[in-house]
């Protein structure tokens, strides 16, 4: 499942971040920010316009990600 499809309040863990281009600076930055295998993630909030961007809690940090960015992150239910 992609992180962008994660329902609100569901716990999941990151499987991997996929590169959509070569190189993909957005994917590389996501990995630097902690989106790596095994990290717990959850969706905290959604933006008011078109439910985009989404607010993702990862570890102790929260990031606002556009859905297109979150689509690079593969997650699985805990």
């Amino acid at each position: 499942m992609q992180l962008s499809e994660l329902p609100r309040g569901t716990r999941a863990t990151v499987v991997k971040v996929s590169d959509l281009a070569n190189p993909d600076p957005i994917a590389a930055r996501l990995r630097d920010l902690g989106f790596v295998a095994g990290e717990p993630v959850s969706l905290v909030a959604q933006g008011p316009f078109g439910a985009d961007p989404i607010l993702i809690q990862i570890g102790f940090t929260r990031f606002a990600l556009r859905r297109s960015e979150a689509a690079r992150v593969e997650v699985e239910h805990v």
């Binding site: 957005i26 929260r62 990031f63 606002a64 990600l65 556009r66």
Partner: peptide, 8 residues
């Protein structure tokens, strides 16, 4: 593609 990736 433009990135947001903004820490809250």
């Amino acid at each position: 593609e433009q990135a947001l990736m903004l820490e809250i």
